[in-house]
């Protein structure tokens, strides 16, 4: 298999968009272009089941990614875990596609006997370690997120430590939303290492709007500019649907 680049959008938000396109639709648009959308919902301690959480799950479902709701404290570990799991998920999707090409229509990794499954998993692990990765990080900096931003910042530095411990190359870029003139605001252009964001979150526009959908749309644009070959082809069936 040719090794390309895994592309992800990592959205960190507390939910409840209120401007522009439906974020789930924009996530689906990303998925169509081989970009998985993962969402981390940072919630308040007293916030429970509401439309915000629903939105977070829908975005990830539509974007072929993973969502996870966390309290601010567990953010660091969650960010790296979600990114990792999403990588594995994408890789497995591609491998299952290959398996189907070889073995016939309905074979996936899970239909193999345990011994063979173990072998396939080694390949998945190997790819997860060596594949190149591009993550566009989208941080919701609307007023309700303000108190969480120092933790978000720490979590992103931590993500950088984790991913840069891999053998594959990484590229990160960082956008916040809402922006001043556009939906988003560029905080950091594509760079292999997140190590200098200590100051970026200081210049925040905390207005009342949360244009999550338009922000995802703009995030998609950042990828085409990097002109890299995608790990996924434009065939969305790579995401297999079996539950595990």
């Amino acid at each position: 298999m040719k090794k390309g680049t895994l592309k992800q959008i990592l959205l960190i938000t507390d939910g409840c968009s209120n401007q522009g396109e439906d974020p789930a639709a924009m996530a689906a648009l990303a998925k169509e272009q081989g970009i998985a959308v993962n969402v981390i919902g940072v919630i308040h301690d007293h916030q429970s089941d509401d439309s915000g959480i629903r939105e977070i799950e829908d975005i990830a479902l539509a974007g072929g990614g993973i969502s996870q709701i966390v309290h601010t404290k567990q953010l660091s570990q969650t960010v790296q875990m979600v990114t990792r799991q999403a990588m594995t998920q994408t890789i497995k999707g591609v491998i299952n596609q290959e398996l189907q090409n070889i073995l016939g229509d309905h074979e996936t990794m899970e239909d193999l006997p345990p011994e063979k499954r173990g072998k396939v998993m080694e390949v998945v692990d190997e790819l997860g370690e060596t594949v190149d990765l591009e993550v566009c990080i989208l941080v919701d900096t609307s007023a309700s997120m303000k108190s969480k931003l120092p933790t978000v910042q720490e979590a992103l530095l931590d993500l950088s430590i984790s991913l840069n411990s891999r053998m594959g190359n990484n590229q990160f870029c960082l956008y916040s939303f809402p922006g001043k003139r556009h939906a988003t605001n560029k905080l950091m252009a594509w760079t292999p290492q997140i190590d200098s964001i200590s100051s970026v979150f200081t210049k925040l526009a905390s207005g009342g709007i949360t244009p999550t959908g338009p922000a995802i749309r703009e995030a998609i644009q950042t990828f085409s500019k990097t002109s890299r070959r995608s790990f996924l082809s434009d065939d969305e069936s790579f995401y297999e649907e079996s539950g595990y």
Binding site: L61, I66, M81, V82, Q85, Q89, Y239, E241, Y244
Partner: peptide
């Protein structure tokens, strides 16, 4: 559904 892989029963 893949999204719930972290929250399986």
């Amino acid at each position: 559904m893949m999204n719930h892989s972290m929250k399986n029963q």
